[in-house]
Amino acid sequence: MSSREQYEPGAASGAEVRKEGEKWTLVLVRDLSHPPAKVWKALTDPEHLREWAPFDSDRSLGAVGTAKLSTVGTPTPQVSETQVKRADAPKVLEFNWGGQDLRWELEPRGGGTRLTLWHNIDRNFISMGAAGWHICFDVLERLLASQPIGRIVGPEVMKFGGWQRLNAEYAKQFGVETPGWPSRPRT
C-alpha cells in the first residue's frame, strides 16, 4: 500500500527537450498499465484532475471550447481562460494553460497506455517543469491504480526532497543550469 509519506520519485527519465530556435518544448513519456479510456478520464474529468494535476478545471476538458483552469497551491489561485483546441477521446487532447501549449497523446500499449505530453515551456523553467510533471505522473499512476496519495503541486512540491533531486537531474540531462529555486547564494 503506497502512502504519501513513503512516496519517493524515481530517477529522472522519460523526458527530452526539443528546441526550435527560441522555442523549447518539454516532451515527457510515461507508460501506464491502464487502458486509454481510463487515462483519458483522469486527464479530462475535473474530479480526477483534482487528485493529481497542477490545476483545477471548471468543466471537463474532454470537449473543444473554453474552460477556466485555476493554478493550485499558490497563495491566490491564478485563474486563466483556456481553449481546448482538440479533444479526440481517448487519443489526443490539446489546450493552452497560462500561455503555454499542452498536447497529450494516448497510445494503446498492450493492456495499458503510453502517455506523451508536449509542453512548450520557458527554457529557464524546463527542468523544474520536468520535475513537477514527473511527480504529477507518479501521483496519476497511483490514482489510476486506486491507491491515491493526493496531489503534490505548486510550492508544496518544492519542499519534497525528491523534487530538488529531480530538478537537478533533469537540468543535467537537458544541459541547462539548475534554476536557483528557492534562490540560494552561490559560493
Rank of each mutant, 00 (worst) to 15 (best):
R50H: 05
D88C: 03
W118C: 01
A168W: 08
G110H: 09
K172W: 05
T71H: 05
K85T: 15
G99E: 06
L32E: 04
P90L: 09
T74A: 14
A87R: 01
V92D: 07
K41T: 12
N96E: 12
F160E: 15
H34D: 11
R151I: 03
P148C: 10
G132H: 00
N167G: 05
K68S: 13
H134V: 06
S127A: 15
T116Y: 04
L115F: 06
K159S: 12
V39F: 04
K41Y: 09
L117G: 03
P90R: 10
E141C: 14
E105N: 12
A87N: 07
H134S: 11
H134E: 06
H119M: 08
P155M: 08
P35C: 10
V79P: 02
T116E: 10
T82L: 02
L117W: 09
W52R: 01
R86G: 04
L143V: 10
Q100K: 04
A42C: 08
K159F: 07
P46G: 08
L144G: 01
A63S: 14
L143W: 01
M158G: 12
A67H: 05
K38Q: 15
P75F: 03
L32D: 06
P36E: 10
G150V: 02
R50F: 06
R114Q: 13
H134P: 09
I149W: 02
D31Y: 04
R59A: 15
W40Y: 11
V153R: 00
Q147I: 00
L166G: 06
A67S: 13
I149C: 05
W163E: 01
A131E: 05
W52H: 07
E107K: 14
R109E: 15
E156G: 07
T74V: 04
A89D: 02
Q78E: 15
D138A: 02
V64R: 14
E156P: 06
V157T: 14
G65A: 13
T116F: 01
P155N: 03
V64C: 03
E107T: 15
Q78V: 14
K85W: 11
K41I: 02
D101V: 04
